[in-house]
Amino acid sequence: MTIEAIHVATIQVLLAGGVGRLTTTRVAERAGVSVGTMYQYYPHKQALLFALVERQFDLIETAMRDAATRLMGCDLKAIANGLATAWLDAKMADMVVSRAIYGIAAEFDLSELMSRAARCMTEAIDALLASAEDARFADRSSVAFMLAALLGGSVRVVMEAEPSEENFARLRRELPQACHAYLAAANLATT
């Protein structure tokens, strides 16, 4: 419960003042714990922020692996729709946390964490595409990579630049179509 309180307090402090104003003392006060307790879990601000980002990445990776498992053996249209919906559901499950994570990403080098997450997602998509009966790709791993990039990049642009209900509704409506169109084009290019 203490770690959860610290994570919630961290998000609240981040949203109120950004990464630059975040201190372990502010988080401890907001969480209702002593600074000593904070240091038991997180020796410094960066450790706290990285733990928060890693937790969010783990939740998203789990959601995408679960979606890939559910979609095994489906056709490309179902895969495109299912992956886009699962990605949006995972990223938008807690918009407050997602916004805070993008703020952290802008301040710190998260390349190792992001590389791991991208690799995991690309591998899951690659295995999923291998299971689709209607898939005939010349380079399936490249298609999986590009689909992961399409999912990640489109949501990031909206979250960072134009986070409005209208744009989130557009993503929900258009991203599954964009993913399917890409898969269909990549598939047709090999026949």
Rank of each mutant, 00 (worst) to 15 (best):
G152F: 01
F145E: 12
E162M: 04
E174Q: 10
V13E: 03
L129Y: 11
L188F: 02
L188P: 01
L52E: 07
A68W: 00
L88P: 06
S98W: 01
F57E: 02
A68S: 12
E29H: 08
V13A: 02
I104C: 05
T24W: 11
V19H: 05
A84K: 00
G82K: 13
S98T: 15
S164D: 13
S154K: 07
A78M: 15
S115Q: 15
A132P: 10
E61G: 10
L76M: 08
R55W: 01
S111T: 12
R99W: 04
E61Y: 00
A181S: 11
A189D: 10
N187F: 05
A189N: 07
R172P: 05
T23H: 08
I101G: 04
A118N: 12
A185D: 01
V155T: 13
T37S: 04
M114P: 00
R65I: 07
L129N: 06
A63D: 06
A149D: 06
L175N: 02
A149M: 11
C74W: 03
M95R: 11
S115A: 10
M1V: 09
R65N: 15
A67R: 08
G82S: 07
A118G: 13
V8F: 08
T23R: 09
A127N: 15
Q40M: 09
N167C: 07
D66M: 14
C120D: 15
V27A: 05
L188V: 02
M121V: 15
I79V: 15
I11K: 06
Q12E: 12
M38E: 05
A47G: 04
L171K: 06
L15D: 07
L128A: 12
E123Q: 14
E162G: 00
T23Q: 09
G82L: 06
I6S: 00
Q40E: 10
V53A: 09
D75G: 08
R173K: 09
E133T: 07
E4V: 14
E166S: 08
A51V: 02
M38I: 13
L183M: 08
L15M: 12
E4S: 11
E166W: 04
F108C: 03
D109S: 08
S154E: 11
A78Q: 13
R170Y: 10
E112F: 15
G153Y: 10
V27R: 06
Q46P: 02
E4M: 10
A135E: 01
R140I: 03
M95E: 12
D109A: 05
I104N: 03
I125V: 13
R55M: 09
P176H: 09
R99T: 13
M114V: 04
L49D: 03
A132I: 02
A178F: 07
E29I: 06
L49H: 11
I6G: 01
